[in-house]
């Protein structure tokens, strides 16, 4: 599914050149659930943005997505891939201000030529993350966890095969994080490929595989032996008013 070879990324600022990614190679098969960890500044976000077709790697890098070289695609083809194949969840939610939940979630489908039943599909995605009662609310009327769930609904509404999360639980407390992880695990069970960045070991152990970065390189890549099920954790947490 994802096959990255000798990936490099440099940032030039004045006369200093910063190697954000150095010769990174990684393979992720369909249906895998991968966590990416590493200290701040190690290149995790840079890597995710390239995988998500939002950013471009340096010359000579190779990124095969479903066997196709991403570097050879033009802007429109990349936009189409982001629209159909990929769902991206950001640490800062990135919702559009003053727009209702329903409208936020409908947006990706509006960029899909020929998409039908846009509203119904958006409502289904909203139900999937448990926000059916909040469909007409605006982002500033929602909690952080709810906003992130809107972002997830938006990421899954087009039924993408891969979902990327760049610290999707980074701004959330334990309970909200577990709720997000429960949704991710369910998506995984449905057969989606998921790759997410996290700083927390506990969160990472909800996945199947942990890839660690340091100074722009992959330093370790191991299987998770005892996978945590978010539903179990949620059961042990004290009950809260559920939305």
């Amino acid at each position: 599914m994802i096959d990255v070879k000798h990936l490099n990324k440099t940032y030039v600022m004045g006369d200093t050149v910063l190697h954000a990614l150095k010769d990174v190679s990684l393979k992720v098969e369909e249906g895998e659930f991968v966590a990416i960890m590493g200290p701040s500044g190690s290149g995790k976000s840079t890597f995710m943005n390239i995988l998500g077709c939002l950013d471009k790697p340096a010359e000579g890098s190779s990124y095969l997505l479903d066997g196709k070289e991403v570097a050879d695609m033009d802007d429109d083809q990349l936009a189409e891939i982001r629209n159909r194949k990929i769902g991206f969840v950001f640490q800062t939610f990135n919702l559009i201000p003053r727009r209702t939940v329903l409208k936020q979630v409908m947006l990706p489908l509006q960029y899909t030529p020929g998409a039908k039943d846009i509203k119904e599909r958006a409502l289904k995605a909203i139900a999937h993350v448990g926000l059916e009662k909040r469909a007409d609310h605006k982002p500033n009327e929602l909690s952080g966890g709810q906003q992130q769930r809107v972002a997830i609904a938006r990421a899954i509404v087009t039924d993408p095969v891969i979902i990327f999360g760049d610290e999707p639980t980074g701004n959330l407390d334990t309970r909200m994080s577990e709720e997000i992880m429960a949704i991710f695990q369910e998506l995984h069970r449905e057969g989606k490929t998921l790759i997410m960045v996290t700083h927390e070991e506990d969160i990472a152990r909800h996945t199947q595989r942990i890839v660690r970065f340091r100074d722009g390189r992959i330093v370790s890549d191991e299987k998770v032996t005892e996978q945590i099920d978010a539903r179990d954790v949620l059961a042990t947490l004290p009950e809260e008013e559920h939305t």
């Binding site: 998500g52 429109d76 936009a79 982001r82 159909r84 990135n94 947006l107 960029y111």
Partner: peptide, 16 residues
């Protein structure tokens, strides 16, 4: 600008 970025991330083409 941010909104443009979000729209593009969600699959908006340049022409959109």
């Amino acid at each position: 600008t941010k909104e443009i970025g979000i729209r593009k991330a969600l699959g908006a083409k340049n022409s959109n």
